[in-house]
Amino acid sequence: MRTQVAIIGAGPAGLLLSHLLRLQGIDSMIVEARSRDYCENRIRAGVLEQGTVDTLNEAGLGARMQREGLVHHGIELLFGRELHRIDMTALTGGRSITVYSQHEVVRDLIAAALEHDQTLYFDAEDVSLHGLPSDAPHVTFKHRGVEMRIDCDYVAGCDGFHGISRASIPADVLRTYERVYPFAWLGILADAAPSKDELVYAHHERGFALFSMRSPSVTRLYLQCHPDEDLALWSDERIWAELRTRFENTSGWLPNEGHITQKSVTPMRSFVTEPMQYGRLFLAGDAAHIVPPTGAKGMNLAVADVRVLSQALAARYRDARTDLLDAYSRTCLERIWRSEHFSYFMTNMLHPSYDDTPFGNRMKLAELKYVTSSHAAAQSLAENYVGLPFAA
Rank of each mutant, 00 (worst) to 15 (best):
L223F: 08
A209Y: 05
L350P: 04
R22I: 01
Y370D: 09
V272N: 12
Y177K: 11
R214W: 00
A296W: 09
I169K: 09
G94W: 07
A90N: 08
N384V: 00
D356V: 01
A241N: 11
L365I: 15
R269Y: 06
D153K: 10
Y201R: 04
H138E: 05
D197Q: 13
V139C: 08
I26Q: 05
S353D: 15
T347C: 11
V139D: 00
L83M: 13
E76S: 14
A391N: 12
M29Q: 14
A136T: 15
F161L: 12
R2M: 02
L210T: 02
T347H: 03
R36G: 01
V173C: 07
L281Y: 11
H162P: 00
N384Y: 13
P133H: 07
S339F: 05
D230M: 06
S195M: 10
A241V: 08
T119E: 14
I30T: 03
G60W: 06
A287D: 10
Q50H: 15
R36P: 00
A320G: 07
H143M: 02
E49R: 02
M29I: 14
G187M: 11
I290H: 01
L20Q: 13
Q379K: 15
S217A: 12
G295N: 06
S235P: 05
T372I: 07
M88I: 10
L83F: 07
G207E: 01
L381W: 12
L16H: 03
P194I: 05
H259Y: 05
G131K: 09
D326W: 06
R95I: 04
L17M: 09
L223V: 10
H19Y: 01
C332I: 06
L350T: 10
I30Y: 00
D54L: 06
G258L: 08
A232D: 15
S235A: 08
R244C: 05
G11F: 08
S18I: 01
D230I: 02
S128Q: 15
Y201K: 01
T245R: 13
L174V: 14
R330M: 08
M299Q: 11
Q262K: 14
S217E: 14
H226K: 14
D153Y: 09
L23S: 13
E125I: 00
L114A: 05
A167R: 15
D159I: 10
G160A: 08
A45Y: 01
P170V: 11
D323R: 12
W240E: 07
H162Q: 14
I290G: 02
V200I: 15
R330G: 00
V146F: 04
A45F: 01
A376N: 11
A302H: 03
A376H: 12
R280N: 13
E205G: 00
K297W: 04
E229P: 03
V53T: 06
H203V: 01
L132R: 04
K142R: 15
L114M: 08
R362G: 11
G11L: 06
R214V: 03
P170M: 10
L132P: 07
G60A: 07
